[in-house]
Nucleic acid binder design. Structure first.
Lengths: 199, 199
DNA sequence: ATTTTATATTACTCATGAGTATTATTATCT
DNA sequence: AGATAATAATACTCATGAGTAATATAAAAT
């Protein structure tokens, strides 16, 4: 008959954290529906009731991971806002720097990133928010002068989100590109397309 | 007691097609797992066993929809290849034209498009293939001359896929932009960034 | 007209996986 | 030391939804 009751040296916070990180990995690999609570606890060396000691249900642990991703991401995008008065020559470096920060976060948290980008309705919201943030960063802060007036910033912001998502999944996470070089390449390719040449 | 047996005027091909189109809508709205066979047949005014008369199982009908999307899409991307010898002045129009063709297909088949873009593993494959096609279109056909050598076409192709996906979901399908204007805007913004200015 | 084939229904089975009632063991507090 | 709180396991329940066996009716073929 197996061990019953509290185990020696067991610690609640630790178990909770373990479940959370394993869950992230399972959700990232298999998606929400194909991830079973039973698999998560098995990998953690725990049992089902223990899971429900720390999380109200399967949905709750998933939401917690999504929130974690969202908060980190938006804190980063806020930080990557450019302060006014940047010289044109350093503009691309500054933008690349902000982008790289985001990529570094993705690289360090691949499971969270996959969840945040892929899991259905929530992912869509996050991308929408991200696009809005980027649009604000581009227009209200680096206003006029830098970019051509002719460009619809909303379209461009959405495009950037698409680019970020796609390159994260195909280049960054598989290790084909590093955060910095990827950020630079994106800026190189696309900034030249939107810089206002007559200013 | 309800009607039993074959109904008057009932037709297999018709029932099958009905099931397919309803299934597409359900999968697009709720995703694979939250779509129930029972809901599909209910909306079709049929019953569960009838469903299994036309499709081996739930997975099969889903795959069929995915294939439909894939084939249509790739047929379009092949068609959008540029023939050699295009003048620089008409280049952007030609590219926009090809893009618009794809967008028109998306607009006419919103459910298929959502499935093909969003549903998990398959979606990822499709995007990968699409990127490869675009890369081929960009390099092997419109080779040299047109675009700057410095640009990593693989990165650019992946980026384009991201842009297409995102703008389809946020602008095209909700009706905020039409296929043609969207295609033109994309080309306007991004082509200028990759055109080789010294040729 | 009778047989056969296609299309459909009623009324199930059955696996799966989320979530729980109960109980046990260790750690901590007084 | 004894009481209480925290952490865990065994052994379930229970809803859900995919898929099926058996049967009936309409249309097409002979």
């Amino acid at each position: 008959m197996g061990q019953r009751g509290r185990k020696k040296g067991s610690n609640g916070e630790q178990s909770r954290a373990l479940l959370l990180s394993i869950a992230a990995n399972e959700f990232a690999k298999h998606g929400y529906h194909d991830t079973k609570v039973s698999s998560i606890v098995k990998r953690a060396g725990l049992t089902q009731p223990t899971f429900y000691l720390y999380f109200q249900n399967k949905e709750a642990i998933f939401q917690e991971l999504v929130e974690l991703f969202r908060e980190n991401l938006f804190s980063l995008t806020r930080k990557s806002r450019l302060e006014p008065g940047i010289e044109l020559t350093s503009l691309s470096d500054r933008i690349a720097y902000g982008l790289a920060g985001i990529f570094i976060f993705f690289k360090e948290n691949p499971d969270l990133t996959k969840i945040g980008f892929y899991e259905s309705a929530i992912a869509e919201e996050i991308k929408k928010e991200l696009a809005i943030q980027i649009e604000e960063n581009l227009t209200s802060e680096v206003q006029n002068g830098y970019f051509s007036q002719a460009i619809d910033m909303c379209i461009f912001a959405e495009s950037l989100v698409g680019i970020i998502e796609r390159l994260t999944v195909t280049k960054l996470l598989p290790g084909l590109k590093g955060p910095n070089s990827l950020a630079e390449e994106i800026v190189d390719i696309f900034l030249n397309g939107i810089i206002n040449k007559n200013s």
